[in-house]
Design a protein around this nucleic acid. Structure first.
Lengths: 120, 120
DNA sequence: TCTTAATTCAACCGATTGGTTGAGTAATAA
DNA sequence: TTATTACTCAACCAATCGGTTGAATTAAGA
């Protein structure tokens, strides 16, 4: 079923979240979720140069989100969901925390106020 | 109550994922998931300056992940789950896609700025 | 062949990032 | 009052980011 339960090294997560931190790249992910596509078609909806899209695809590829198959002069890109799953997994860890544990910030502040912190 | 069903504007997601794209900030999130803390305590485990941590906390705050309460000279930071939920929600969209095939996905594609499918 | 299409590469640019240090500002402690 | 603590602010720096343009590469079509 789900084969992506890897250790999630920090530098790997850096690269994955960084790749997601750009709307053009997220739009490319959205597009690729519909199916594989060649670079020119991926670039078509955007108002930036093909070279810029090429760079964005490289970022996604380095993050492990996109696989590339070169057929002649055409590069076909496809989504690889493993990296996305890793990011999702990281977030899910903390979702579990806050669903269960975290309550009201104001409540904490009151508690902290009534109970002075220890000296350093 | 889950208040995180917002429209997920692109620039907002840019900021959220960018905030997560740094291991120090993710470590701060991890630390804050265990409970609120003051800035000095948050900075203690790291081998960088307090000013650097202060900046990281500002990034998390601007991303909506951290709330701050100033009590005297002490700033108490607490995790705000809304922004993390937004990132999770974005990823969940794709998780839903790759888990269940394109059930809800065509719907999503229309909402986003992705172009209609053009070729097979 | 000669031309065109698909894509990357390389150099460049301004803006941003992630860190530093030192000074500034308040609140608490002595 | 004077120090000390908690933290931010401001200036600076090197590295990276996101884009550009123009040239290079390679494949396909005429």
């Amino acid at each position: 079923m789900n084969a992506a339960a890897l250790p999630l090294a920090d530098d790997r997560l850096d690269i994955i979240f960084q790749a997601l931190a750009n709307r053009t790249r997220r739009a490319l992910v959205a597009r690729l979720a519909q199916g594989a596509a060649k670079v020119t078609d991926l670039a078509a909806p955007f108002e930036m140069s093909l070279a810029a899209i090429s760079k964005h695809l490289l970022v996604l590829e380095n993050a492990g989100m996109v696989d590339r198959s070169v057929q002649g002069r055409v590069h076909i890109c496809a989504l690889n969901t493993g990296a996305l799953a890793s990011a999702d997994q990281w977030l899910d860890t903390y979702k579990a925390f806050w669903d269960d544990k975290l309550e009201n910030f104001a409540q904490f502040v009151e508690t902290e106020n009534a109970q002075p912190p220890e000296k350093t």
